[in-house]
Design a protein around this nucleic acid. Sequence first.
DNA 1: ATGCGCTTGTGCGCTCGATCACAGGTCACC
DNA 2: GGTGACCTGTGATCGAGCGCACAAGCGCAT
Lengths: 241, 241
Amino acid sequence: MTAGGSTPDRDLPIAEMGVVQSAGSSSPIPEATLARLPVYMRSLVEMADEGISTVSSRQLADLAGVNAAKVRKDLSHLGAHGKRGVGYDVDRLLAEIGGALGGSLTPVVIVGAGNLGRALSRYDGFMAGGFPVVAVVDSDRSLEGREISGVSITHVDHMDGVVRATGSRLGIVATPAHAAQEAVDRLVAAGLRSILNFAPAVVSVPPGVQLRKVDLATELQILGYYEHVRTSSEAPEQAVG
Amino acid sequence: MTAGGSTPDRDLPIAEMGVVQSAGSSSPIPEATLARLPVYMRSLVEMADEGISTVSSRQLADLAGVNAAKVRKDLSHLGAHGKRGVGYDVDRLLAEIGGALGGSLTPVVIVGAGNLGRALSRYDGFMAGGFPVVAVVDSDRSLEGREISGVSITHVDHMDGVVRATGSRLGIVATPAHAAQEAVDRLVAAGLRSILNFAPAVVSVPPGVQLRKVDLATELQILGYYEHVRTSSEAPEQAVG
DNA sequence: ATGCGCTTGTGCGCTCGATCACAGGTCACC
DNA sequence: GGTGACCTGTGATCGAGCGCACAAGCGCAT
Ligand SMILES: NC(=O)c1ccc[n+]([C@@H]2O[C@H](COP(=O)([O-])OP(=O)(O)OC[C@H]3O[C@@H](n4cnc5c(N)ncnc54)[C@H](O)[C@@H]3O)[C@@H](O)[C@H]2O)c1
Ligand SMILES: NC(=O)c1ccc[n+]([C@@H]2O[C@H](COP(=O)([O-])OP(=O)(O)OC[C@H]3O[C@@H](n4cnc5c(N)ncnc54)[C@H](O)[C@@H]3O)[C@@H](O)[C@H]2O)c1
């Protein structure tokens, strides 16, 4: 029950945990930086479209809504050398970030063709971002064969074959919570090593499998907390001057 | 996020550092803890359903997939006193967490009734979690009046009235990226102070407004990065071929 | 050639979160 | 009543990440 990949608890060999070492050409790249690279990329694409060829860390920081020093440190992680006194070359930066993030297409399989699964399947932003949805599976046989934006739904029992046939490298779980662990297990069994889970359930994966979760209910509840605190401290009037 | 509200501690003058403390009853509760409370809550609800009345930090930690000490420290933040040698009372803990997170219902308004907005509107988990979707607005007049799970779509121009009439306290932005800033501005103008943004755009809000974002594309890209690093370090021979 | 303004790259201190470890409290059982 | 197993609450330590601030590099105007 203790999630191996998501929360490195006690039993994991610490040596293997942290980052993905140095076989490739790139450096480790810290998570926090990693999470910002796509944001930079979006801003850079916009600039490139406008014909801007050079950008300073300050400008990029403003567009991305972060600190300029952070931008510089982030970019330094992927060896992107800008010119002092000038800034960074937009096109080169795009290439560097793109390369660091994986560059080529990463086909995605979605498990669960309900409300959320269908919305995700139809989302063209994934395709645009290099993550084409090439397969959708569900346990509901009545959905079998139905098409969603060019991809026909397959029964979850055939996941193995579908994953292999389509070359999916990344799985998205959009099943009810009680089926999430099973869905994840099947994805892992099919050979996937990167999974994004939308179900509000704690699932465990074997070591070496990357599991991330998107917990919308939790996001709402965090906002709800602040809302609650605000209203209960605003109501009793401004006691402190 | 140039947002003044999204990361309170960073943007505020250090003098103001303490969070919301003064008037309210509860302590500040750190973000990291806040994000885990809903997870604990889910596990606790399950246990309560099974008739379990007492839980130790170890048990809860296993269910939530985290460290036991972390559970204890988290719970200590909301003054939830367990009994040494025994554990925590499940029902009391549920009440305490529920109270800390806001307790009562927090009505939600969704901006943008496209793929994602409709999926979110139909999601009954929000209602179950205390966040009923009481309003849906869109700029597309052809959607006006159409119903989604009991809520009829209103034109975005009437947002003010709808928000007031429904008592919405929390806004969800599910518009295209280019309309996100406008949507946020309108929500703020309507009096909302807590917003969850799904659009992949950097939006800014006035100080005091809580803005959180859910960036699905970024999640995929982070996974894609690890996938990329793994494959390029696992199959150096095959890749060269 | 030289000075000046602009920008990068990064060392440093700080805060926050995670984990360990242990003292102190509780209960069951004999 | 005493003993031992168990569990909580928290001080201490460690690491990640953030932002400041500055030295070093670059290019243009003169
Ligand atoms: N809909 C939303 O907006 C939303 C928002 C936040 C979180 N979520 C979460 O996302 C998940 C999906 O939500 P939804 O609204 O799409 O639910 P849904 O009930 O509409 O769809 C779930 C789908 O999963 C399929 N399924 C069930 N068991 C399966 C299995 N073992 N293997 C494969 N497929 C299986 C079902 O047939 C169904 O089609 C849920 O866990 C939900 O909590 C949804
Ligand atoms: N669909 C997904 O699964 C998904 C996944 C990740 C991110 N997103 C993001 O969520 C957002 C919505 O995605 P979608 O697929 O639902 O897009 P969509 O195009 O299907 O829907 C967008 C809706 O917003 C409405 N809209 C446009 N401008 C508006 C305005 N100014 N005020 C109010 N409403 C307005 C449109 O009329 C439309 O109904 C996008 O930013 C997208 O990038 C979507």
